[in-house]
Deep mutational scan, measured.
Amino acid sequence: MIINNLKLIREKKKISQSELAALLESSRQTINGIEKNKYNPSLQLALKIAYYLNTPLEDIFQWQ
């Protein structure tokens, strides 16, 4: 199971779900699903999230 700190990191950087979704060329619903652990992002999307949040991938997503 993958757990994530996306919501915590996103809020700390003062970025809304909609703003992050626009940067990622994704939907706000996708970001919401990832944050609620209802959806696991593809590797490509996970890497883009890490890039746009300027945060190491392993700080956002962790195996448990």
Results as ranks from 00 to 15, higher is better:
residue 63 W to M: 05
residue 18 S to P: 06
residue 31 I to V: 11
residue 60 I to T: 01
residue 31 I to T: 01
residue 24 L to C: 15
residue 45 L to T: 06
residue 43 L to E: 06
residue 42 S to E: 06
residue 31 I to F: 03
residue 1 M to G: 04
residue 24 L to E: 00
residue 59 D to C: 14
residue 63 W to L: 05
residue 37 N to D: 07
residue 40 N to Y: 12
residue 62 Q to E: 08
residue 40 N to M: 15
residue 60 I to P: 02
residue 60 I to N: 02
residue 49 I to Q: 00
residue 20 L to Q: 00
residue 58 E to N: 13
residue 37 N to G: 15
residue 53 L to A: 03
residue 39 Y to M: 13
residue 9 I to H: 06
residue 41 P to H: 02
residue 50 A to S: 10
residue 44 Q to K: 13
residue 42 S to G: 09
residue 31 I to L: 07
residue 61 F to Y: 01
residue 11 E to D: 08
residue 58 E to I: 09
residue 57 L to D: 00
residue 1 M to A: 07
residue 23 L to G: 09
residue 20 L to P: 00
residue 42 S to V: 04
residue 60 I to Q: 03
residue 57 L to M: 09
residue 10 R to M: 07
residue 28 R to H: 11
residue 44 Q to C: 15
residue 47 L to I: 13
residue 25 E to D: 14
residue 28 R to T: 15
residue 41 P to W: 03
residue 51 Y to Q: 09
residue 19 E to W: 07
residue 11 E to A: 08
residue 61 F to M: 01
residue 26 S to Q: 11
residue 8 L to Q: 14
residue 15 I to N: 01
residue 29 Q to P: 06
residue 46 A to F: 04
residue 54 N to E: 15
residue 55 T to L: 05
residue 49 I to R: 00
residue 57 L to W: 04
residue 59 D to F: 10
residue 52 Y to V: 15
residue 22 A to N: 12
residue 41 P to M: 04
residue 38 K to W: 14
residue 19 E to A: 13
residue 6 L to E: 06
residue 21 A to S: 06
residue 35 E to L: 05
residue 61 F to C: 03
residue 62 Q to C: 10
residue 43 L to C: 15
residue 25 E to C: 15
residue 4 N to Q: 03
residue 43 L to G: 04
residue 61 F to T: 00
residue 31 I to Y: 02
residue 11 E to W: 06
residue 13 K to D: 03
residue 10 R to A: 03
residue 15 I to M: 15
residue 4 N to C: 12
residue 43 L to D: 03
residue 32 N to K: 11
residue 34 I to V: 05
residue 5 N to D: 04
residue 59 D to Y: 09
residue 50 A to L: 04
residue 5 N to M: 07
residue 48 K to R: 12
residue 1 M to H: 05
residue 6 L to R: 01
residue 40 N to D: 07
residue 62 Q to Y: 06
residue 34 I to F: 02
residue 51 Y to M: 11
residue 11 E to G: 05
residue 30 T to S: 06
residue 34 I to M: 03
residue 49 I to W: 00
residue 4 N to R: 02
residue 63 W to Y: 06
residue 13 K to N: 12
residue 1 M to Y: 07
residue 58 E to A: 12
residue 35 E to N: 01
residue 45 L to N: 01
residue 50 A to M: 03
